[in-house]
Design a protein around this nucleic acid. Structure first.
Length: 625
DNA sequence: TTACCCGTTGACATT
DNA sequence: TAATGTCAACGGGTA
C-alpha cells in the first residue's frame, strides 16, 4: 500500500513542541508532508484585528517556518493565499493527499470553517484527522462531563476536568520532518470579497495580499505587513515559539515567583517589565502549549512545598480560567459572543446596543446610537481622552503595545459598562478584539461578561474607581506619567485627578486641563473629565439593581421581540436605553432625552413596579419547568 | 424552604 | 503597614 501523503494545516497551533495534531500527522509516517497555512480572508477582513496582532502572527509564522527548515532544508511553512473553504477542494485534486490533519478549533467561526473543509475532504476521499491541543482538556469533553452545559465557574471547570482525568503530559518536538510533495497551484484563485473591511482603518497602502495563491514570487512566502497595506507595528512585544520557550524557561527559573504567584496581588501599573508573564499571546497563536506551561509550573509548585499559591489566584489558576471560557464558548457557540439569544447572559438595557440580523439573530457588527452622549463617552474611552488619567493611560498603552495587565482591563471594562458609561459590553469587547495582541475570543468575551456583571460574576456593587484603584498600586502615578506625557510634571497629589489642580499648579506642570478631548483637543492641554464619576457610579448602580430585579436573559422572548421595554421605567426614572430604530420589528419610542432627569435613584415607583411584575413572571416560568 | 457560605482581583475606615 | 470590618447586597451551591 502506498505511503500516506499528508497535508498538515497550521492555524492557531504555530509550534512544533507538544502538538498532538502534528504528532498524529507524523505518526502516519508520511511519504510527503505539506506544512501549510491558509491566509483566510475571514480574519483579514471580517474579524477585527489591528496591526500589532498581525505582526505577532507573522512573527510566529516566521519562527515556525525557520524551525521546520532546520529539521528539513526542503521544507518550511507554506502559505496559500485563499480562504480554506474554496482552496481545499482544489488542493485535494491538484496535490492528491491521502490525509488532512489539523488541531481542533472550538471558536464559532472555526467550527463552521472546519466542518466545510471536512465535508470537502470526505467528498474528495481525503481522510481527516483532528486532535485537541489548544486547551488543557478538550473543551467538548469538558462540556460533555458538565452535562452539556457551559462551565460558568472555576469549580465547575475543575469538577469536569477531574472526570476526564489529569491534563495530558506534553509531547516533545519532532526531530525529523518529511519532505513536502509537489505543490501545483495551476488552478483559478478565488479572490475574496474585501468589503466590508473591518480593518480598513489600518491600511495606509493598497492591500496586495491576494494577488496570487503562492504569493508575489510564487514561493508560498509568509505575508508581510507592507503587502497587507499596513504601517509598521507599534508593539514592542514579539512573537514566535523560540521566544515563548525562552520566556517560559526564564519564568520557571524564578521558583519563588512561579510558585507563589497570586494574580490579584500583581500590579496593573507596573511596566518594563510588567508584573505578569505576558505569555497570553503565545497561548493564543499556539506558539506555546498551555499543557507544557501547566506541567512545568506544576513541577515548581510541587517542589516548593508550603507557601505555594493555589487556584484560582495562582499561575495554574490562570490557565484553568482559560479552559473555563473555552468550554463555555464550546457549549454556547456563536451566541456566547452576544447578549441576544444567549440564555447565560443577563439582559441590561445598555446604551449603544448591537444591531442584529433579523434572520439569524446574530450581531451584524454595527450598533444603535440611542444616546449621543453615550457615543461621545465611548469614543473618548476608545481614544484614551476621557479626562481620567488612569483610564487614558491604560487605553493608550493598549493602543500602542496591544497588551495591558489583566486588572487594567478590568478598570477599562468596568468604566465603560456598569461603572461609568453604561455602554453595551459588546462595544468594549469589539475594541479589545481589535487592539489586543493576545485576543482570544472565548476569554475576551468571557471577561467582558464578567466585568459587565452579565455572566460569571454578579457583584455589581464592587465598582472600580478610576482614581483610587490606580492609587492603590502606584501612588506617584509613574504609570500615568509614562502613558499620558502631558501630565508628566503634575504633582502626585493631582496626577489621578488633574481637574482639581489649581491654575498655578497647571502652569507649573506645563499643562492646561481644558476641553472635551476629541477633535477640539489643544496642544499642551489635557481634557476635563467627561463626567462626574461618583454621580455616574450611583446612577449605574441603581440602574443595575433595577435590571437585576427585572431579571431578563438574552434568550427571553421579551428581549428578542423588544417588549422588554414595558418592564423598564421610562428614561426620566433611571438609566435606560434611549430611542432607536429597533431591528426587532418596530420603532421603539421612549421619548426625548433629558440628561439630568435620567439621573434619579433606583427606588422610584416605576422601578419597583417593573421589579414586581418581573418576579411574578419569573415565578410562573419556574412553575412551568 | 430557609439560612448560610463562598466567590481570582472594590472602596473606605479602623485597628 | 497589613489585616479586618463595613458598606449594601449578587447568584449558586449546600446543609
Amino acid at each position: 500500500m502506498a505511503k500516506p501523503r499528508v497535508i498538515y494545516w497550521f492555524r492557531t497551533d504555530l509550534r512544533l513542541h507538544d502538538s498532538p495534531a502534528l504528532q498524529a500527522a507524523l505518526d502516519l509516517e508520511p511519504e510527503v508532508l505539506w506544512p501549510i497555512f491558509t491566509w483566510d480572508p475571514h480574519y483579514v477582513y471580517k474579524a477585527r484585528g489591528g496591526v500589532n496582532r498581525w505582526q505577532f502572527l507573522l512573527d510566529c509564522q516566521n519562527d515556525l517556518s525557520d524551525s521546520i527548515t532546520k529539521l528539513n532544508k526542503n521544507s518550511k511553512l507554506f502559505v496559500l493565499r485563499e480562504g480554506p473553504q474554496t482552496l481545499f477542494p482544489k488542493l485535494f485534486k491538484a496535490w492528491k493527499p491521502t490525509h488532512l490533519v489539523f488541531e481542533k478549533d472550538t471558536d464559532a467561526y472555526g467550527r463552521s470553517r472546519d466542518e466545510a473543509v471536512a465535508k470537502a475532504a470526505q467528498e474528495a476521499g481525503v481522510k481527516v484527522i483532528i486532535r485537541s491541543g489548544r486547551t488543557l482538556w478538550d473543551s467538548d469533553g469538558i462540556v460533555e462531563k458538565h452535562g452539556g452545559k457551559p462551565t460558568m465557574s472555576i469549580t465547575q471547570l475543575q469538577a469536569a476536568g477531574k472526570k476526564i482525568g489529569p491534563v495530558a503530559k506534553p509531547l516533545p518536538a519532532p526531530e525529523r520532518f518529511p519532505d513536502p510533495g509537489d505543490m501545483p497551484v495551476d488552478f483559478e484563485q478565488h479572490v475574496p470579497d474585501k468589503h466590508p473591511d473591518f480593518n480598513a482603518g489600518y491600511r495606509s497602502e493598497k492591500d496586495t495580499g491576494y494577488n496570487a495563491i503562492a504569493g508575489p514570487n510564487g514561493d508560498f512566502a509568509i505575508e508581510t505587513l507592507e503587502e497587507l497595506g499596513f504601517a509598521p507595528a507599534t508593539t514592542p512585544h514579539r512573537g514566535g515559539e523560540s521566544i515563548a520557550l525562552k520566556t517560559l524557561d526564564g519564568l520557571i527559573k524564578n521558583k519563588r515567583y512561579t510558585a507563589t504567584f497570586e494574580k490579584p496581588k500583581t500590579s496593573p501599573a507596573q511596566f518594563e517589565p510588567q508584573s505578569t508573564t505576558l505569555l497570553s499571546p503565545f497561548f493564543h497563536f499556539g506558539a506555546l502549549s498551555v499543557r507544557l506551561f501547566y506541567w512545568r509550573v506544576h513541577e515548581v509548585v510541587e517542589s516548593y512545598g508550603k507557601g505555594a499559591s493555589t487556584p484560582p489566584a495562582s499561575l495554574i489558576g490562570q490557565v484553568l480560567f482559560r479552559d473555563m471560557y473555552f468550554a463555555a464558548q464550546a457549549a454556547l457557540g456563536q451566541s456566547f459572543a452576544q447578549t441576544a439569544t444567549n440564555a447565560y447572559c443577563r439582559f441590561i438595557p445598555w446604551h449603544l446596543p448591537s444591531k442584529r440580523d433579523p434572520e439569524t439573530g446574530f450581531a451584524t457588527g454595527d450598533y444603535h446610537i440611542d444616546k449621543p452622549k453615550a457615543e461621545e463617552w465611548f469614543q473618548r474611552w476608545k481614544a484614551g481622552v476621557t479626562g481620567f488619567p488612569w483610564i487614558d493611560a491604560l487605553m493608550r498603552q493598549l493602543k500602542q503595545e496591544g497588551w495591558i495587565h489583566h486588572l487594567g482591563r478590568h478598570s477599562l471594562a468596568c468604566f465603560l459598562t456598569r461603572g461609568g458609561c453604561y455602554v453595551d459590553w459588546e462595544r468594549g469587547a469589539e475594541v479589545f478584539e481589535e487592539l489586543l495582541i493576545d485576543h482570544e475570543p472565548a476569554c475576551n468575551i468571557g471577561n467582558w461578561q464578567w466585568l459587565a456583571c452579565v455572566a460569571f460574576f454578579a457583584q455589581y456593587y464592587r465598582c472600580y474607581s478610576p482614581v483610587s484603584f490606580g492609587q492603590k498600586w502606584d501612588k506617584n502615578g509613574d504609570f500615568i506619567r509614562r502613558w499620558v506625557p502631558e501630565l508628566k510634571k503634575v504633582k502626585a497629589k493631582y496626577i489621578y485627578e488633574p481637574w482639581k489642580m489649581p491654575l498655578v499648579d497647571q502652569k507649573q506642570a506645563g499643562v492646561r486641563v481644558t476641553g472635551g478631548g476629541l477633535s477640539e483637543r489643544q496642544e499642551g492641554s489635557y481634557p476635563k473629565p467627561m463626567f462626574d464619576f461618583d454621580e455616574r457610579r450611583s446612577i449605574c448602580l441603581s440602574a443595575m439593581k433595577n435590571a437585576y430585579a427585572v431579571g431578563l436573559h438574552g434568550n427571553d422572548e421579551k428581549v428578542l421581540d423588544g417588549s422588554w421595554r414595558s418592564l423598564f421605567p421610562s428614561p426620566d426614572e433611571a438609566e435606560v436605553m434611549g430611542e432607536y430604530e429597533s431591528d426587532y420589528g418596530e420603532t421603539a419610542d421612549i421619548g426625548d432625552e433629558e440628561e439630568d432627569q435620567e439621573e434619579l435613584n433606583g427606588d422610584s415607583a416605576g422601578i419597583k413596579r417593573a421589579a414586581r411584575k418581573n418576579s411574578a413572571d419569573a415565578k410562573t416560568k419556574k412553575q412551568k419547568t
